[in-house]
Design a protein around this nucleic acid. Structure first.
Lengths: 202, 202
DNA sequence: GTCTATAGCCAGATAGAC
DNA sequence: GTCTATCTGGCTATAGAC
């Protein structure tokens, strides 16, 4: 019976995730989530009380998929170069499999900046401190050209994430179909790291 | 009297822009737009018939602010390097003054991909053809390291636009306040071009 | 735990006076 | 052209049967 409960609850969460990620908090409908889960609308309220609470469960789940991976680039002990090569490959691969994730998280934080505050309280929240020290050291040692860790971090994030968020726009500008665009993304798993390292390797 | 009409109409458009850009189509309320314009809700319908039509007027206006600037990097005759330096500086400066714009346009295209199709029909819609030829030529001439024009274009867009879309998230990760983040953006008006050119200059 | 039925509210849209 | 008042539909949430 605990099993049944957990199954229904996770069925709801999965359906809610599908709908919220595509439509956002404002665009999502409880009825659509219920349909997606193959159950009744009232049951959603039985398990999660309100749309808001269901949404928050989905949001925190989504965020906890995206954020911890950043700890790798921020806190691992290997060289900046090694981390950039591995991170961009892994992150682009991961987002390819969850293309709605970054747009959803960013959109909802923009809608309600309080989320950003809540999130910072959580354990495992990525912190740039160590990365900053490492970059400064490698710059001083002459391994990297002069660059601020903050700018480098923003560049890595931008190059990894934006193509997914801006996909429909980029597809239009590049005048490509779905397949060609997928190939371009596939290429980025390697060319992003090359692009970055060409720029900063001393 | 034509004047009065145009004034009311543009007052409504301005108010609608303010609200739609912040809240998006789904989050915006006609009442809020009416309040922002200092007029009555019924008047919105008198001028624009429906929320959808008012929204589309705002969307097309927003898009027509963002897109034509791309024609500079895509179609101007100066060298790739010159264009990147000028474009990143100008675009980041422009978006700094209209920070909600890119997020709004991208969000709404993601919500309704039909917009992307409609938009492509418009005159002045940016086209990458000429840029592609130019990049290929400069690569062949040994001015640039080997890079595909499509990837370079995506990189330029990503580095210019993403920091605005991802601002609350980046602020949290970097653990910076509003002021520090503004300074980082200010720096990007020059460092983005340096970052790109370091990477691709042969 | 799960359903049907419905309460209650809110938002977009319209009618009609001025 | 602009307003007040109101209709109508749709959505979240709850009541209550099973």
């Amino acid at each position: 019976m605990t099993n049944t409960t957990e199954n229904t609850e996770s069925t709801i969460l999965k359906a809610a995730k599908t709908v919220f990620l595509k439509k956002g908090m404002d665009g999502a409908r409880m009825q659509e989530i219920a349909d997606e889960a193959g159950i009744n609308k009232a049951l959603l309220h039985y398990y999660f009380r309100s749309k808001q609470q269901l949404f928050e469960a989905v949001f925190l789940n989504a965020f906890s998929l995206l954020a911890p991976q950043l700890n790798y680039i921020l806190n691992d002990d290997s060289s900046v170069q090694d981390k950039i090569i591995k991170f961009t490959h892994n992150y682009i691969t991961f987002i390819s499999q969850h293309p709605y994730l970054p747009n959803f998280v960013i959109q909802e934080i923009n809608r309600n900046p309080d989320f950003a505050i809540q999130i910072k309280e959580r354990p495992q929240f990525p912190d740039i401190k160590k990365f900053k020290i490492q970059v400064d050291l490698e710059v001083k040692a002459g391994v990297l050209k002069p660059i601020k860790a903050e700018q480098l971090f923003i560049n890595i994030m931008s190059l990894s994430i934006f193509p997914f968020i801006g996909k429909p726009l980029l597809k239009a500008f590049l005048n490509t179909d779905e397949n060609t665009f997928s190939n371009i993304i596939e290429e980025r798993k390697t060319v992003v790291a090359i692009f970055i390292m060409n720029s900063i390797k001393a």
